[in-house]
């Protein structure tokens, strides 16, 4: 599904990712763990198409280069990024944002756009599953939301947009244990044989609830070790400093 070969990324002449390689097959859950500044967020930014990076190498999504696609086109193709810091958009109602987003994606895929009633039915169902306070959906997008609410809102959006590849950028940070469980349940309910996940995290805590198929350790822009879920535990025990 996703193939990254020799990816290099620089920002303002500073090299962030060096020779990064990764392959994710349909249905797999990969976790990337790394300390601050190892390049985790850069990876999610590049996969989602954020501007401002000098990149080289190859990133293929379903055998097509991602570099040729705009951010929204990647979203249309089924890439979803749960932001580490979800943005606030004053004045824009959360429901309206969700509906606009869903219909933009449906339209691009040649599917029928949902009308208000169909949409509200869908949102209600998904929100209930995630124990998301429906009243919040009538508020301005992320404005005045707590850190945990913003993250849950990201997972709600993910479950509504039903992407093929979901990238969770430190979704666990700032979550208490209850919220963490809800987020994990949300992710687990989306796990299907065609849907893949890339979970980017600092701690292995989230991986107690979402069992990854593979764990990779990212240090200074490179994957230095890959393995199964046991790698995360090892990392937790030793710490990043002593790991190398």
């Amino acid at each position: 599904m996703l193939k990254i070969k020799n990816l290099k990324a620089d920002i303002e002449n500073k090299s962030i990712l060096k020779n990064f390689n990764l392959e994710i097959k349909p249905g797999e859950v990969h976790a990337i763990m790394g300390p601050n500044g190892s390049g985790k967020s850069t990876l999610s930014n590049i996969l989602s198409g954020k501007k401002g990076y000098d990149v080289s190498g190859e990133v293929l999504f379903e055998n097509k280069s991602l570099f040729d696609l705009e951010t929204e086109e990647r979203a249309h193709k089924g890439i979803f990024l749960a932001f580490q810091y979800p943005l606030e958009i004053p004045g824009v109602n959360t429901n309206i944002f969700l509906k606009t987003s869903l219909n933009a994606i449906r339209k691009a895929r040649g599917e029928k756009e949902l009308d208000a009633i169909e949409f509200l039915k869908l949102v209600k169902l998904k929100a209930q599953n995630l124990k998301f306070d429906e009243e919040k959906l009538n508020r301005q997008l992320n404005v005045g939301f707590s850190g945990g609410e913003k993250k849950k809102n990201e997972i709600l959006q993910m479950s509504i947009l039903n992407p093929k590849l979901s990238i969770l950028d430190e979704t666990d940070s700032g979550l208490d244990i209850d919220a963490l469980k809800i987020v994990a349940d949300g992710v687990n309910s989306l796990r299907k044989k065609d849907n893949s996940f890339l979970i980017i995290t600092h701690y292995q805590r989230l991986l107690d609830y979402i069992k990854p198929d593979y764990v990779h350790v990212l240090m200074e822009g490179k994957i230095i070790k890959s393995g199964g879920p046991e790698l995360a535990l090892e990392l937790e025990k030793k710490g990043y400093e002593n790991f190398n």
Partner: peptide
């Protein structure tokens, strides 16, 4: 970037944000 990641093209994104700006 956030709006585009959710599938909106730049013009739709700007329209949405500007309408939010004008909402009051």
């Amino acid at each position: 970037h956030y709006c585009q990641q959710r599938g909106l093209n730049p013009e739709e994104a700007v329209g949405l944000i500007v309408n939010g700006f004008c909402k009051e």
